[in-house]
Design a protein around this nucleic acid. Structure first.
Lengths: 176, 176
DNA sequence: CGCTAGCTTGATCGAAGTCAATCACCGTGG
DNA sequence: CCACGGTGATTGACTTCGATCAAGCTAGCG
């Protein structure tokens, strides 16, 4: 209902990768008892609506339209995962950081009104560690790239978490 | 029905990322006229069964069970995409190459019988360029890592394409 | 006050990228 | 049959980007 949840996977040796962010009001959970689960963790304060698995699955089985809507969301998640694969595989560190900021800016904004504004601001739901794990970088590299973006006036940051973007297009231009 | 298809995405500047491989007998195509498409390209000789979009969508709308099966496949693809994000984000070059070989070994094998064998062999459906684009590496790095895997007796390669894996477990151990 | 957690900054190192040469394999045409 | 060019893969020398190691800095809090 509110907030940001991060989905992560770990490798035996402790390396960890954030594989997705879910913003309200997405559905969260494994359908059809599938394995290979990810770990879900609140990244900000969250408020959520819990439904017992059995009841939910009965509901889904009974109303194909509900399944259809869930299908739509999963398809969107698949597209986002693939977009992110491009970012992870092909972009430089600074492009990665810019891309993540751009992604968050686009999703977190509660004012879903006339999205014509070029400037925006938001609170980062992720720590530097989370960001590094999402981007496949170290926190030091993330920090340096944020510093650089700040030096180039692409963003400004107060209290390490609150980000102001004077021009989303300028930020987008940094995404590669 | 037969063969391997690769799904790719490109970045304006020409950088390209393979975001998925589809092995027979997967369904291939965009459901529900979604945007944000990927490019599908045959990676080996393929044989496929084409269905007109309109007829197919009518069929899906009419038989929820069909939609349910497609849902299952997409869920699997999402899991695979997320697994691959971990590989792209956290693994070293040689782990990436080993992971790709392991992935292909697991999917391409037509003998879906008693999968207890620890050794296998197959023809790579991908060129070095494709592999590099899948892994977010350069062809030179891919080549060096393959050479190293060969030197360490984890695989042997003939004619650049035919790969023999004496021990899948040994290969898996190289995946990180 | 000092302590801790999270972030930034600097110095150095190493894995992978870049540039370039060579090789192996083919199909084509003289 | 063999020279020729073309494509894809390998190998080597060098460079670079991001990781690692190591201090500081800042803010919140007991």
């Amino acid at each position: 209902m509110r907030g940001v949840v991060k989905l992560t996977k770990v490798l035996e040796n402790g390396r960890q990768q954030v594989v997705g962010l879910q913003f309200a009001p997405d559905f969260l959970g494994r359908l059809f008892g599938r394995q290979n689960a990810v770990t879900a963790e609140a990244a900000s304060d969250v408020e959520l609506c819990e439904v017992p698995r059995a009841a939910f699955e009965r509901l889904v089985a009974e109303y194909p339209q509900l399944e259809h809507r869930l299908f739509g969301q999963i398809l969107r998640e698949l597209d986002e995962a693939r977009d992110w694969m491009v970012t992870l595989g092909q972009k430089t560190a600074s492009e990665k950081v810019a891309s993540l900021l751009y992604l968050i800016a686009g999703h977190i904004d509660p004012s879903t009104g006339p999205e014509t504004r070029d400037s925006t601001e938001f609170d980062l739901p992720l720590s530097r560690i989370d960001i590094a794990e999402f981007l496949g970088l170290t926190i030091e590299t993330v920090s340096r790239q944020i510093t650089k973006l700040r030096a180039d006036q692409v963003i400004s940051v107060v209290a390490n978490r609150h980000v102001t973007v004077p021009s989303l297009n300028r930020l987008k231009a940094r995404c590669g």
